Simulated assay, not measured.
Amino acid sequence: MTTSSAAATAASIVDACVLVGRSRFGGELTLPAAARQAGDLGVHTLIVTSAAPADRDLPGATERLLRAAAATGLAVRVEVLARVDPWEPDAVGAAERALAGGAVGVFLHPWEETFRINEHALLDPLLRLLAAEGRPVVVEGGYPWVSEPAQLADLAVRHPEVPVVATRGGHMNMSGLSGQTALRALRAAPNLRVLTSGVYRQDWLAGVVDELGAERLCYGSLAPVLEPRMELLRPAALTDPVARDLVLAGNATQLFGLDSR
């Protein structure tokens, strides 16, 4: 399947996680470049968040993204996830201001900000804010020691009113029992969802749809860390057209409240 035929499988496509800006760990994707590439692939909405900025000023990076997303002239619609470092003293305040300014949720990167996603004393205040605001949290999933499937489930079970969305299917290494532990996490936490980014096992995606429902999956490229032209092929290859359209657009539209914006 080519990328052009993949784009034709849904009336609209939402890419639920793209990292924008220059990362202090290497790599850069500008917002105009991300929007142009998305338009070429038939994606009509990008959910973007900030790459790790060199100055570590995540609130400032989020504010700049919100301003850029509101500007005209981009090839696609852009919405913003507020990237938050929970170690910062004003993390909850920064998230609250970003949500009031138009952010559709919060993004957490446990590996780059060095915290465990189920470090409850650290995360509880932020999750209580998201529960009150009715907004999701998107987590870079699958990193050893900090965001493994059982840890993601622990967070989601503790905060059942908050949609918890893990990138990479919640697990990076799909060999051995890794996929099974991610399935166990999904079974344990009905509010846990996963992005298709990096999940090269098509049978695993189909298994989630068959057992738990297409509502538990969203397309998210995780560009530029992963290649969106390849990532789009995975959900677009789902054989059930209803499930395919939910994964490509419908679930993210509901999750981020896009119809009401």
Score class of each variant (00 low, 15 high):
residue 223 A to W: 03
residue 251 N to F: 09
residue 5 S to W: 13
residue 245 D to R: 15
residue 44 H to I: 03
residue 7 A to Y: 10
residue 176 G to K: 06
residue 21 G to R: 06
residue 59 P to L: 09
residue 67 R to A: 12
residue 17 C to P: 01
residue 116 R to Y: 00
residue 133 E to L: 05
residue 163 P to L: 02
residue 28 E to G: 01
residue 202 Q to V: 03
residue 130 L to T: 10
residue 122 L to I: 03
residue 64 R to K: 12
residue 5 S to Y: 03
residue 231 E to H: 05
residue 208 V to C: 02
residue 170 G to K: 05
residue 30 T to W: 02
residue 214 A to K: 04
residue 241 P to H: 03
residue 43 V to Y: 07
residue 18 V to H: 07
residue 72 T to R: 09
residue 67 R to T: 12
residue 234 R to D: 00
residue 57 D to C: 09
residue 126 L to I: 08
residue 18 V to P: 06
residue 116 R to D: 06
residue 231 E to F: 02
residue 111 W to C: 02
residue 138 V to T: 15
residue 62 T to W: 09
residue 101 G to S: 08
residue 49 T to F: 03
residue 1 M to Q: 05
residue 178 S to F: 10
residue 4 S to Q: 11
residue 123 L to W: 07
residue 122 L to T: 00
residue 195 L to Q: 10
residue 182 A to V: 11
residue 91 A to C: 10
residue 203 D to S: 14
residue 198 G to V: 11
residue 227 E to P: 00
residue 7 A to M: 10
residue 118 N to G: 15
residue 249 A to K: 05
residue 256 F to L: 07
residue 214 A to M: 06
residue 160 P to D: 11
residue 246 L to Q: 15
residue 41 L to E: 13
residue 208 V to L: 04
residue 53 P to C: 14
residue 83 R to W: 02
residue 147 S to Y: 02
residue 223 A to H: 01
residue 122 L to N: 06
residue 10 A to V: 10
residue 107 F to W: 14
residue 94 A to G: 08
residue 114 T to Y: 03
residue 199 V to T: 04
residue 49 T to A: 11
residue 245 D to V: 11
residue 218 C to R: 02
residue 160 P to S: 09
residue 219 Y to A: 02
residue 250 G to C: 13
residue 105 G to N: 09
residue 34 A to W: 03
residue 115 F to T: 08
residue 11 A to D: 15
residue 171 H to G: 04
residue 11 A to G: 15
residue 90 D to N: 14
residue 194 V to E: 06
residue 259 D to S: 13
residue 97 R to Q: 14
residue 236 A to I: 10
residue 248 L to A: 14
residue 23 S to D: 13
residue 8 A to Y: 01
residue 98 A to W: 12
